[in-house]
């Protein structure tokens, strides 16, 4: 990991891009191609919404995990649908999708919701309720 990436990993934020491209990712063990899907992130009153383009991925083939503050999306694309065909002109190649993010404590991990529609994944990352000032009762005795 470069110094540049360390800088990112160390500063605060609701969500951070993690090191999907480096280190112990499935990229090193899984055969075939692996792509970093394009994403959009926007803010709403409730938190953040993340969209990712995952063409060719269906809900059964999508693995979305939150583990130790890390949100990992891995989408497997069905192969072989054009296997018997001979390519004449090729602009894109087919591969799986992997991208990971680091969530801060300000995201309520329990309430994360995701939906995959027509090859687009939408993840809602609700902001955790801000801790309100709380008076601590001091018991006597």
């Amino acid at each position: 990991m470069s110094d540049h990436e360390k800088g990112i990993a160390e500063s605060g934020g609701l969500i951070r891009l993690a090191d999907a491209a480096s280190g112990n990712s499935p990229a090193e063990s899984a055969p075939g191609l692996l792509f970093n899907p394009p994403i959009d992130i926007y803010e709403t009153v409730d938190g953040l919404v993340l969209y990712a383009d995952l063409p060719g991925v269906t809900a059964e083939d999508l693995d979305l995990q939150v583990q130790d503050k890390k949100l990992i999306l891995f989408g497997r694309v069905a192969r072989g649908q054009t296997a018997e065909l001979v390519p004449i002109h090729q602009e894109y190649r087919t591969g799986d999708f992997l991208r990971s993010f680091i969530l801060s404590d300000d995201v309520d991990h329990e309430r994360i919701q995701a939906r995959l529609t027509n090859g687009v994944l939408r993840i809602e990352l609700p902001r955790a309720e801000k801790s309100k000032p709380r008076r601590i009762e001091v018991a006597q005795g």
């Binding site: 394009p38 969209y51 383009d53 995952l54 063409p55 060719g56 054009t82 018997e84 065909l85 001979v86 390519p87 004449i88 002109h89 090729q90 602009e91 894109y92 529609t117 027509n118 090859g119 687009v120």
Partner: peptide
Amino acid sequence: GRGSGRSFPLLNLLEDADSYVVTAELPGH
């Protein structure tokens, strides 16, 4: 991002003996 400077959608053209097949990555429609 990906849309800039690149075509959208990306297309592949393939064939077999009987037909041509054009595929396009068009998520979100």
